[in-house]
Design a protein around this nucleic acid. Structure first.
Lengths: 145, 145
DNA sequence: CTACGTGCAAAAAGTTTGCAATCGC
DNA sequence: GCGATTGCAAACTTTTTGCACGTAG
């Protein structure tokens, strides 16, 4: 019963080709390049499907609208780093690991989410930084450029 | 220029007397008990002030509206635990600590936010749990009761 | 008394939903 | 052809803003 439509294809492609989490609006803009007349409602409806199918995952950062990223990257357990200077969001593929002990007694930890804040290599002075842009997997501003 | 109004006092009191992060709506309801006719706009305006004054802090959980909690608790660096069963939110006063190494080279970590998800003592079977409700610092549902 | 703060209502911004038209299968 | 999917517009929800009035200092 799941049909293949140009819209769904374009939306999925937009998310998967992005190297960073996209907002619904950004997905609309990107997918619109393929499917003119695409409506935001369709984007939301497909996002909901894709979330259910677990092909896409939400990234919610405090004070910002939800972003969506392909689960190809998301499946590989990771966290996020937001630069407090340029606001860009990067994927962090490291993990502190054992957090089970953090919970009070009687609590069972199943899952965790971690967001680091600080300065990315680019905004940090950029000496050793310039050579290795580290993992700028996801930009969140300066994108209209 | 910062004036002391009944509204602001009530709003601040509501947040500080709560043992858990409150939504704007909940703050309105609580503070309305003191100041009838209190408007939601006033709540938001005062929250903005209180945030600037750093007397209050935002707690943003994925898919949920922002909650606000007194910085008396928030200053004491902590994290949150949301029960996937009862949806309540608890404060966790432990911290994994050194996360600086997690960031890619060239990145500087200034701050981090961590949310644990799992089952709280109450929802977990509640044997050893019943005796020690651990740190149920913050409830997020079952509150209208 | 003066201007900051408030209440109300309207406006934004983001997301969801109803419905007729469209299109995949 | 049938029914899932779409586009549009309207509804909803949460937060912000404009403006006249109230009130703290």
């Amino acid at each position: 019963m799941e049909r293949t439509t140009r819209q769904k294809t374009a939306i999925q492609a937009a998310i998967e080709s992005a190297r960073r989490p996209l907002s619904a609006q950004e997905i609309l803009e990107e997918a619109s390049l393929q499917v003119t007349q695409l409506g935001i409602a369709t984007v939301y409806r497909n996002l909901k499907s894709l979330l259910l199918e677990e092909k896409v995952q939400v990234v919610t950062l405090p004070g910002e609208n939800p972003r969506y990223e392909s689960n190809a990257v998301a499946n590989h357990h990771h966290h996020h780093f937001q630069c407090t200077t340029c606001q860009r969001v990067f994927d962090v593929h490291d993990c502190p690991g054992d957090l089970k002990r953090m919970a009070p007694q009687g609590f069972v930890v199943e899952r965790h989410e971690l967001t680091l804040y600080g300065r990315c290599a680019d905004c940090n002075g950029a000496d050793a930084a310039a050579s290795t842009p580290a993992s700028p997997a996801a930009h969140s501003c300066a994108d209209h450029a």
